[in-house]
C-alpha cells in the first residue's frame, strides 16, 4: 500500500510477458522499476575542476545550472587539498536571473564550517541542499582557509531520496502499489503507458553535465593570469586562444543537441562573439562575453556505438586593447527520446 523505491532494478524475462506465472508480475515490476529510476538516476548536474593555483584566500565561483523542475535536493561534493589542517567554510547562493552582479538573495546554504580537513591529502566534504526549479546560477564560495589550499573538484548531483506520492512537475507519476496489488484489480492502459512516460520524464528532466570550464569569479579589471585572454602585443591579428579541450563519453548516442551556458566578461570594448565552442559533428558556436549568462544550443554527432564520444574545444578571443575573462562555461545535455 505504498510508494516503493526499490534499490535495484528487476529484469523480467521476455517469456514472463507471454506465459505469465502468477508470481511473475511483470507490469508491477516494470512500474516499480520506474520508481527506482526516480530515486537512483542522479547524473551530475555540475561537475567541474576549476582552473587556478593554490591560494590562501576565499574564492568564489559562479556557475550556470539548469536544475530539475521538481525542485529536488542536491548533494554537493567538494574535493579540497589544504596545506594545513582545520575547517573551512562553504557557502552556496542561488540566482534566478542571468546577471551575476545582483539578485542573489539569501544563501541556499549559508556559510557552514566543514569537518576538520586533514592536511596534504585530498579531503572530500559534502552537504545537501535543495535547488529550486527556477535557479539559473549558483555562487559557490570556499572560504576561511587555514593556509594555501586547492579546490580540486566540485560535483552537484540529485540526492537519492525515496519517492514521495503525488505526480511531479516533470511528468513523473510515482507508482503506488496499492491499486495493482489489491485482489483482481484492473490492469489498465494508464499503468502501461505510465512505464514509458515515467522513464522519459526522469531522463528528460535531469540534465547532465558533459563538459565544464570554470575559473574563480572576479570582476574587471582582471589581473593578467594564464586564462585571461588579451591580444598579444606586436601582432595585428586578433587572438583567439585555445583555453580548454574535453571529451565526453556518450554511449549509444547519435545526433544530440546540447546547450552551452557561458558567463564571460571583458574589461572594456566590444563583447560580441568572444567565446567559441566547437563540438565534434557540429558547427562552432560563438557566445558574447557580456558578463551576463548567455546560452546557445550545440548540435553534436556521436557514432551510435557504446564507445561513442564527443570532443569539445573552447577558444576565447580578445579584441585589441581589451582583456576577456571566461568565468564559467558548462555544456548540459538532456537525453533525446528513444
Amino acid at each position: 500500500m505504498a510508494v516503493t523505491s526499490p534499490s535495484k532494478l528487476t529484469i523480467t524475462k521476455e517469456g514472463d510477458f507471454y506465459f505469465t506465472a502468477m508470481s511473475a508480475n511483470p507490469l508491477q515490476t516494470a512500474l516499480a522499476n520506474s520508481n527506482h529510476l526516480y530515486k537512483f538516476h542522479t547524473p551530475n548536474l555540475l561537475s567541474f575542476s576549476p582552473l587556478g593555483v593554490p591560494v590562501n584566500f576565499a574564492q568564489t565561483y559562479v556557475v550556470p545550472v539548469m536544475p530539475s523542475v521538481d525542485g529536488l535536493s542536491y548533494d554537493f561534493w567538494y574535493s579540497i587539498l589544504p596545506v594545513n589542517s582545520g575547517t573551512m567554510t562553504v557557502t552556496v547562493e542561488a540566482n534566478t536571473g542571468t546577471n551575476p552582479s545582483g539578485g542573489w538573495g539569501s544563501p541556499i546554504y549559508p556559510a557552514t564550517a566543514t569537518a576538520s580537513l586533514t592536511a596534504n591529502v585530498w579531503n572530500s566534504t559534502r552537504h545537501t541542499t535543495t535547488i529550486a526549479s527556477n535557479v539559473r546560477m549558483l555562487r559557490i564560495t570556499i572560504g576561511s582557509p587555514r593556509g594555501n589550499y586547492t579546490l580540486g573538484h566540485v560535483a552537484v548531483q540529485p540526492s537519492r531520496v525515496n519517492v514521495t506520492s503525488g505526480f511531479k512537475t516533470s511528468g513523473f507519476i510515482p507508482f503506488d502499489d496499492s491499486l495493482i496489488t489489491s485482489s483482481r484489480a484492473a490492469i489498465n492502459t494508464e499503468m502501461i503507458n505510465r512505464c514509458k512516460t515515467n522513464a522519459l520524464s526522469v531522463l528528460n528532466d535531469r540534465q547532465q553535465c558533459l563538459a565544464s570550464l570554470v575559473q574563480p569569479y572576479v570582476v574587471s579589471p582582471f589581473t593578467n593570469g594564464p586564462y585571461v585572454v588579451t591580444t598579444p602585443g606586436g601582432y595585428t591579428y586578433v587572438a583567439n586562444r585555445l583555453i580548454g579541450m574535453a571529451t565526453a563519453h556518450v554511449p549509444g548516442q547519435n545526433k544530440m543537441t546540447a546547450h552551452v551556458y557561458c558567463l564571460a566578461s571583458v574589461d572594456g570594448g566590444s563583447t560580441a562573439d568572444l567565446v567559441t565552442i566547437w563540438g565534434s559533428g557540429s558547427d562552432s558556436v560563438t557566445l558574447d562575453a557580456t558578463g551576463h549568462l548567455v546560452s546557445k544550443p550545440l548540435h553534436l554527432q556521436g557514432n551510435g556505438t557504446q564507445t561513442s564520444q564527443v570532443s569539445f574545444t573552447v577558444r576565447v578571443k580578445a579584441n585589441p586593447g581589451q582583456k576577456t575573462y571566461l568565468h564559467s562555461l558548462i555544456v548540459l545535455w538532456q537525453p533525446g527520446e528513444f
Binding site: 502468477m22 508480475n25 511483470p26 508491477q28 483482481r184 484489480a185 484492473a186
Partner: peptide, 22 residues
C-alpha cells in the same frame, strides 16, 4: 471480484486471474 464488476468488464485484464498479467 467486486460485486459491481460485470461479466463483460471481467473479460478485460485483471490481476490475479491466473492467466492474466499480474
Amino acid at each position: 471480484g467486486f460485486a459491481g464488476c460485470t461479466d463483460w468488464q471481467r473479460m478485460f485484464a485483471h490481476a490475479d486471474d491466473g492467466t492474466f498479467w499480474g
